[in-house]
Nucleic acid binder design. Structure first.
Lengths: 230, 230
DNA sequence: GCAAATTAATGATTTATTCAAG
DNA sequence: CTTGAATAAATCATTAATTTGC
């Protein structure tokens, strides 16, 4: 079994935003001219690292802690509504045409469009309303995730006996996806992994070991076993 | 390096980000003239949604399932042209200067730089070696995550009394059975546990873990060993 | 010493989770 | 409640360190 897993890895994926990760700091002003005390220590470090780097203008990058998006417990908004790039609408509000096209693509098996595809889709959807590449990116991510979510919840509700949703052994190899998405093969679900490990069933561990490095791990474990001194 | 045989191909990672169609289509033909049945349904949907959208060129986006990066069983090497740029440069390999600056920024409280900041940082780091915005983005993500990880593990090892519930009864040391579901719930920090379990394959890490967490791991490991079925 | 074997570190990618607008 | 947006966690994959057998 181990060998079947020898899947060669996949192709690289693109981040869709060229130079524009989805605005990572929502309600954060830029503070470009701010020079926190921290910059001193940092500057020292820099000089100690390399002289050349000393030309780096640290101050222009320093950002106060408060800007850390998720950690801010307070004022998220009053820090001025930022650049307010969008006059009014803060987030993308897809039109029916756009949704139609996206769903069509989704049904057509598209799940994780690459950079170029996103570009093209965005261009097309742009005909029906304002849109950015990241909107397309997020749409697919969310759509995928929520489909999985729903599926999980459904299966859970339908089979209450699923105490241990058997990550079916070898047999599943031939039974998989008569009707479902092929994405099952991707990751070993975390929860499943945990469960099995915790229950000491060993099957997962064995599987994993076989899958990843086969004999080598087996050897290691055995030597460990025999060399244990507890 | 692990298994040589596994190394089947190396794609030009760096390039694909710009406008990389070629590499992404590796092993996947475009089928641009192909009109899968799926597209029919999709087209119907589309038309039902809006007539205007019908001008959307679905076919140019259709992608066969096999093209899903993670599932692809590629065999290959480059489809010729493509790379050219990086002779073997698959992933970003930061220079000392770059790392120095990044760490400096990190110590200066920067955690999640926004798009503009990333742009600036990239520009600066570009002086010391090839780099892209995504590298900066990822660096911060990883650095953050791994700091958390380390912290969590450390706190777990150093202060077992804080969170770690009463260590399992000694008597169960070798008797753990796959049925023990309660025990599963006792450990809340799944990622940590995963990590540790995973490290089981490494003699060195196992030693460390054993040293830090003692009995709990001893127990786990023994249980696993007795359950193994090679 | 050195080259192969192995481990540790970390860059890159995808999934899970969370927040909040509407 | 739905869902766009964003971050955190998990995972995969490649490279650098390090160890090991000659």
């Amino acid at each position: 079994m181990g060998i079947q897993a020898m899947k060669v890895h996949q192709l690289p994926r693109g981040l869709i935003w060229d130079h524009d990760p989805p605005s990572l700091s929502l309600g954060c002003k830029r503070f470009r001219s701010l020079a926190p005390k921290l910059s001193n220590a940092a500057a020292d470090t820099l000089s100690s690292t390399t002289a050349a780097a000393s030309s780096f203008d640290l101050k222009s990058f320093i950002k106060p802690n408060q800007c850390s998006p998720r950690n801010v417990e307070v004022h998220k908004k009053e820090s001025s509504q930022v650049e307010a790039a969008q006059p009014g609408g803060t987030r993308w509000n897809p039109t029916q045409e756009q949704i139609g096209i996206l769903e069509m693509l989704y049904r057509s098996a598209m799940r994780t469009p690459n950079a170029q595809q996103i570009e093209q889709i965005t261009a097309q959807l742009g005909k029906y309303g304002k849109i950015e590449g990241k909107n397309v990116f997020y749409w697919f991510q969310n759509h995928k995730a929520r489909e999985r979510q729903k599926q999980k919840r459904t299966s859970l509700g339908l089979s209450p006996s699923t105490r241990t949703p058997p990550p079916p052994p070898a047999s599943s190899l031939f039974l998989s996806s008569p009707n479902k998405e092929e994405e099952n093969n991707r990751y070993k679900r975390k929860c499943v992994f945990d469960e099995e490990i915790f229950s000491f069933s060993s099957s997962i561990l064995t599987f994993k070991l076989n899958k990843k490095n086969g004999p080598r791990f087996t050897k290691t474990i055995f030597s460990l076993l025999f060399g244990l001194k507890w």
